[in-house]
Write a protein that binds this DNA or RNA. Structure first.
Lengths: 227, 227
DNA sequence: ACAAAAACCTTTAGTCCACAAAAATTTTTA
DNA sequence: TAAAAATTTTTGTGGACTAAAGGTTTTTGT
């Protein structure tokens, strides 16, 4: 009894089908209107049966998630590249972060589709979804944390803060505004960023609270703007 | 031609059906397992056709949303009552807030159902959902803002902060942890609260930064705990 | 190399949600 | 009380999803 062949014909066929299904899905989700986006249509283009699509990806949202997962690499690369050392404080950092996320999101899919993605990520019928999404979150937070550490190393932010904790907190704040951005057709990127800036000002994340012996200048007046 | 009767037989019948549908839905969502929860089943108990359920509430999630909306009053009442003047700072306030929200949520529906609710609120096939949910949010934030003003009036928090902005920012931070709580079966209320406390510490919302002439004591060490 | 075994895709059939249009019923109105 | 209006039910269609049966191809053991 030999080992299971990791690269047998069967494995390659599966990988092929996976790829074909994703390619077909991308073609439909991007080009075609929402009318033609049926499991059936995807299956036909991919040259498999609709049941196979289900077996591979669970649900229609599952196919979508896989599509999103593919663009993760790109987002992560962009994030690492564009976020590097450009910020003076966590507030600044977060503004850049949200800006990149929004731009990236709309570059690949439109809001209507993103709503389904987010809904699927919380609804989690298939546990794979939640996990996939959470993994991306973790890596994104990792980038934030690195930058926070950089700020701390430069003396721009108090070293007592736990960078990891702050990274998650900041990420959540930003994510709330991203979801708001996605949830409504009326909210454009500039508005989302304005809302985030208000959050930052209200939480006093803009001017670094100096580690000791000094007092942050109060009275940063937030814009009059909120839902 | 007389005025449209605001209380004609027709109106009363509609109200009756609405009530019967909601009652039937509650019965099924609470008692029965998820298997029996079909539009058909709800319609049968309510004594109407399944199409009527659709006409009244749009989708299955719509019925669910209506159910949630009903418990809003209670949550708001509890919130106003239990939050009143018990907090020493915004961090404290937010911990109480999340605690009340989590308790209230599980008292009425289980996590699986809540996931659908949240998914529907962002997915927004029916625009009513988003609006309903957002209205509740606004009123909840209102409660937060009142309490923040109270803190400011008592000199426990700098008066320069814009209470409304801070209210929304705090609400979003808390909401992220609530969604985390709902999204996973493994996270209990205590864990969610612990995560929120870490957020609060990282953001330095615990000790009020004194308005002027004093320095916040640094070095509040956050727990070692995060996803 | 070959036959048995295992893997796995497709077909088939069925449930349910969602939606639309026609048909039937009941309240309103004149 | 009969016509008109409103609203429900009936009927029918499409698509997501699931389960089971059937068939084909790769693997495996000799």
């Amino acid at each position: 009894m030999t080992d299971k062949p990791r690269t047998g014909l069967r494995e390659r066929q599966k990988e092929d089908r996976r790829a074909r299904i994703i390619a077909a899905a991308r073609q439909l989700f991007l080009k075609a209107g929402p009318e033609n986006i049926t499991i059936e249509a995807i299956a036909e283009i991919a040259g498999v049966s609709s049941v196979t699509v289900h077996n591979y990806y669970g649900t229609k949202s599952g196919v979508l998630l896989a599509l999103v997962a593919e663009s993760d690499r790109e987002l992560l690369y962009t994030m690492r590249h564009d976020l590097l050392g450009k910020s003076r404080d966590p507030g600044d950092l977060l503004m850049h972060f949200l800006s990149i996320v929004c731009t990236h999101a709309l570059k690949h899919l439109d809001k209507v589709i993103w709503r389904q993605v987010i809904a699927a990520s919380v609804n989690g019928q298939d546990p794979r979804f939640g996990k996939l999404y959470h993994d991306l979150d973790r890596r994104l937070v990792g980038v934030l944390v690195e930058e926070i550490r950089r700020l701390q190393a430069s003396g721009l932010w108090p070293a007592e803060s736990d960078a990891t904790q702050l990274g998650w907190a900041l990420f959540n704040i930003q994510n709330a505004r991203f979801i708001e951005f996605i949830s409504s057709d009326h909210i454009d990127q500039a508005t989302a960023l304005r809302h985030l800036r208000n959050d930052i000002r209200a939480l006093m994340l803009e001017k670094p609270p100096l580690p000791t012996g000094d007092v942050p200048t109060g009275g940063v007046l937030p814009d009059r703007c909120h839902p």
